[in-house]
Design a protein around this nucleic acid. Structure first.
Lengths: 297, 297
DNA sequence: CGGTAAGTTGAATCTAGTCAAGAAACGTGG
DNA sequence: CCACGTTTCTTGACTAGATTCAACTTACCG
């Protein structure tokens, strides 16, 4: 109940001074609704937004937290530049990275319901975000009805993203997860106008592992395996995607079969010559790549 | 772009005949906004909702799909009775259960952004849902501003649910996941007025496994282990929770240490007397329960 | 009362985690 | 500019946990 009250306080339509807590916005900088829609890729060329409001920006330095888990909810944020990690912190200190928001991505939506943010957003870079005070957004809807649909869409989009993540964690093995991670990153960077096949990771192996439900060593091994297989080229944080289709086949062995890629080839002595027989491993979707297998093929 | 257009078609505020596709609603039955808020537990006693609209209901029989993945998005749904499973279907036929919505839970929100549902909702029971055509909801907001906050909240709530799921999949081992699943179910049934310690599962081991990223055999083994340990009592679909705190300790070994529960006791011959030495297993949070360990202690 | 679907259990195998030791990159100060 | 310590990353060996395959038991439904 108290959570519900605090929420309604923040979202009261009457006279909420929704600007108050945003004291760290750096001055001069602001963002129109039009620019916001472009940033979010929810952009209809002929659209008139009928509203002259501008949203404040905020700069966040590397290592700094945009929001802390547990903080009272006030605003949604959309990254405008830089890169973040959102970290869910359990009661007992157990953590997990839930995402790596970048330019155009939403943060803070998990705080709406309870009135408190559920995860922390930590900048991995010097970043800039657009501040969207929800109470103000809610009021603006009455001036620009299309804004309502926009809010629904960005919330739904975030939901789909997390659903996809759950699917990845639930069905893919280690290399599949890493491959999916790289392809996702590649696609997002490509959409932003950067090269989709050559980029630098902003996060550590540990962060990636936490995100993918793996240990950092496993992430490292998976990257090495994909490297040795010739699908990517890794050198510390620098990634080059050589064969994106091959990565897709790592995720989806069915497509792999169709394409004549043969993952069922037990040709590797695997250093410690145990020579195992027939069993297989993961259930629904499986990478089929033993650690050195692709290397030797 | 086409996806975006179809979305805006459905959500156009002017004159969308949002009732058309809901032909299967069974007559007479309808649902007021007031009742809806109570169902969703977003209920402020003194609230006046200023709107006399009624939402249609729809009955879904066991095995029937409320929505299919890929269908054009039209409405959100809130379960009023019964139980569903939401199934994400990958392009290559790989499936995963993303949730088991019950009374008061939202379905269909993953379709808002793209204009097409991303997952199917299949009834595990004879169920009834409240149909919330989004276009109509969007218009109603102008009659009852509080309705706007309600929509944001239910979307955020769903997001938090999936985030939690991702955390479970990413950090817990098999028994931890099963324990978390049972506790979650228990809490939800309790909130609905049913017994939180004695209930029947509506889903198969396979469905549970798909939901938890495990094989059905593993689910079965985990349930057996928790049963043998005396934490629960399982008999096929019938579950009795004997020691909820113990289940919580399975999820959070830290709390387990505090409570003097000793999971690090290698006393089990484990049938095939291999007698392994020292290593440990999962990363951040781990159950620490070998299959027969608790039985022998 | 059979036939089928669902659940349990066992044994062998494989995947990912653990422990441990180095190698490579980075920042800082001499 | 290089030595130095720290952090990050890589790789190896071994182990625990989850999957696979398979047999069997139990429930369910006409």
């Amino acid at each position: 109940m108290t959570a519900a009250m605090s929420y309604y306080d923040a979202l009261d339509f009457g006279n909420a001074d929704d600007e108050t807590p945003c004291k760290r916005e750096h001055e001069g900088a602001s963002f129109s609704v039009r620019e916001l829609t472009r940033l979010l890729h929810i952009d209809e060329p002929g659209e008139t937004w009928q509203v002259r409001t501008a949203f404040a920006l905020r700069r966040v330095h590397e290592g700094e937290a945009l929001v802390h888990a547990g903080d009272k909810f006030h605003s949604l944020y959309v990254a405008r530049s830089g890169c973040f990690k959102t970290v869910y912190t359990d009661l007992s200190g157990s953590e997990q990275v839930l995402g790596f928001p970048m330019c155009g991505d939403l943060m803070g939506a998990d705080g709406i319901d309870s009135g408190h943010y559920r995860s922390s957003a930590i900048s991995l870079d010097t970043s800039e975000v657009v501040i969207l005070p929800l109470a103000r957004m809610a009021r603006l809807v009455y001036q620009s009805p299309r804004l309502e649909a926009l809010i629904y869409r960005i919330l739904s989009r975030e939901l789909v993203r997390v659903q996809n993540m759950a699917w990845t964690l639930g069905t893919l093995g280690a290399e599949g997860r890493v491959a999916a991670f790289l392809l996702n990153l590649s696609a997002r960077l490509g959409a932003l106008g950067y090269s989709p096949c050559s980029f630098n990771l902003r996060m550590t192996r540990q962060d990636i592992g936490s995100y993918l439900g793996l240990k950092l060593e496993t992430v490292s091994r998976a990257l090495s395996a994909l490297n040795t297989a010739g699908f990517i080229q890794v050198q510390q944080r620098s990634i080059d995607i050589i064969d994106a289709d091959a990565l897709r086949r790592v995720i989806d062995p069915a497509a792999c079969d169709r394409a004549g890629f043969a993952p069922t080839r037990e040709s590797i002595p695997k250093a410690s010559g145990v020579e195992n027989g027939g069993g297989r491993a993961r259930p629904q979707v499986q990478s089929g790549i033993a650690w050195g297998k692709l290397a030797a093929a």
